[in-house]
């Protein structure tokens, strides 16, 4: 935990420096007749972020925060495994949105999560995997007319939309 506190402070400090540099793409000083330049707001806020990171590192060095005094591990092996499984499954689902669309990715994610991670029966898994995309489609696409990504399955939906409209 102690090393994670330092690492986060340093990483965010570097990110603040990047934001400061990125902000200078627009003027950061006073422009007569226009007021502060377009980059001033984000530049000075990023500077503030950097100062906070310096304060966080100083407090870490002086062991002033509970995390900087902690001897616990930041993430144990069980926690890491759960994090990787969940974050990985989410990443895969979002990636699949681009390829097979929402109505392929959502059932795939639900089958993986409910059956293989949750250990639920095929009946329950199948019910959720079938009902969730249908409810999502009816609510978002038909009622609210918000189109979700469909990937290569897009042409398959034309008869369904023709039925509703």
């Amino acid at each position: 935990m102690r090393m994670a506190e330092l690492a986060m402070g340093v990483v965010m400090g570097v990110f603040s420096l990047y934001l400061m540099w990125k902000s200078t793409e627009l003027p950061i000083g006073w422009i007569p007749g226009e007021g502060p330049g377009g980059g001033a707001w984000s530049f000075w806020l990023s500077t503030g972020m950097l100062l906070c990171c310096i304060a966080i590192v100083i407090r870490w060095a002086k062991r002033m925060t509970p995390q900087s005094r902690s001897t616990e591990v930041y993430m144990d092996s069980r926690g890491l495994k759960l994090f990787l499984l969940n974050a990985g499954a989410l990443t895969a689902m979002i990636g699949l949105f681009h390829i097979i669309g929402a109505y392929g990715a959502i059932p795939a994610f639900l089958i993986f999560y409910l059956r293989f991670m949750g250990g639920h029966s095929w009946r329950l898994t199948g019910t959720f995997a079938a009902v969730t995309p249908v409810v999502t489609f009816l609510f978002f696409e038909i009622a609210l007319q918000k189109t979700l990504p469909k990937g290569f399955t897009d042409p398959w939906f034309e008869p369904i939309f023709a039925f509703f409209y």
Binding site: I94, L110, Y113, G119, H120
Partner: peptide, 30 residues
């Protein structure tokens, strides 16, 4: 929880996409 969690994840992903209809926002949300 193993039923609720994936449903919430799906709601999050769809809910994050709907305001702007941009997959960029979904990745950013992750």
């Amino acid at each position: 929880f193993t039923i609720l969690a994936p449903i919430i994840f799906v709601l999050c992903i769809v809910g994050g996409f709907v305001p702007t209809l941009d997959m960029h926002d979904v990745w950013l949300m992750l």
